[in-house]
Amino acid sequence: MSRIEGVLQTLKGQGRKALIPFITAGDPHPDVTVSLMHTMVNAGVDIIELGVPFSDPMADGPVIQLACERALKHGTSLRRVLAMVKEFRATDNATPVVLMGYLNPIEAMGYEVFADAAADAGLDGVLTVDLPPEEADDVAPLFAARGLDPIFLIAPTTTDERIRAIADHSSGYVYYVSFNGVTGAARINVEEVAKKVTHIHELTALPVGVGFGIRDAETAAAVGRVSDGVIVGSVLVDTIARNQTDIEKLKRELTDLLNPMREALDSLAS
């Protein structure tokens, strides 16, 4: 059983929901990322999605675009991100880490070289925004052989036929994008999300994480009620943007954002 499956199964046994933060690796600086990851674990998160910065993040809104630019300015390459995962793993053997990003940095590194380095670093999952399952034939066996969970997106526009196909190609969890749009937009409609996630649960046994538009304890709880986990990104990245120089203050603010989300999610269990 993969680390991701283990964590999600334990949570399910406890009737709890996963809190999954997203930050862009290398933002505000590559030297800070690992300690921000530990801070988030201390604030109660279950799985970390680490963004690999890309020059042309087409699926992201301005908040994450700017985070990519900051990270790239400090030379955050995919190799460097994997080194961060390895460093994190040295002192945290429990929290799964998923890389989230675009295909080209992986393609430039070489699929097999990447898969080897990812496994060596202790990475758990890979979510490539612009790689649908149809194009994943080359990477799938490489990931499977190394125990890396391929995580794919499901969108409001995804047909039932595609949901089944996506689930067949996925392990760990599937990521439901809560609305048509880019990251950081405020378009979430909790009722529609509930309907679609319930439907996805009918089509696959995989856990469903929901991301896009979750900004606070209230939206986290509303979405957590129907899903297996919530993914929180832009609001954290925005906090990083506002506290680039004072890292201690940044850690306090991240903790202050995540703690109420954790409490709100856990209050659903009772």
Partner: peptide
Amino acid sequence: ARGHFGAFGGRFVSETLMDS
């Protein structure tokens, strides 16, 4: 059928656009 010209082409987009 998948839009490939030899090793090139294809459909590398986020899931939201696939159905369209």
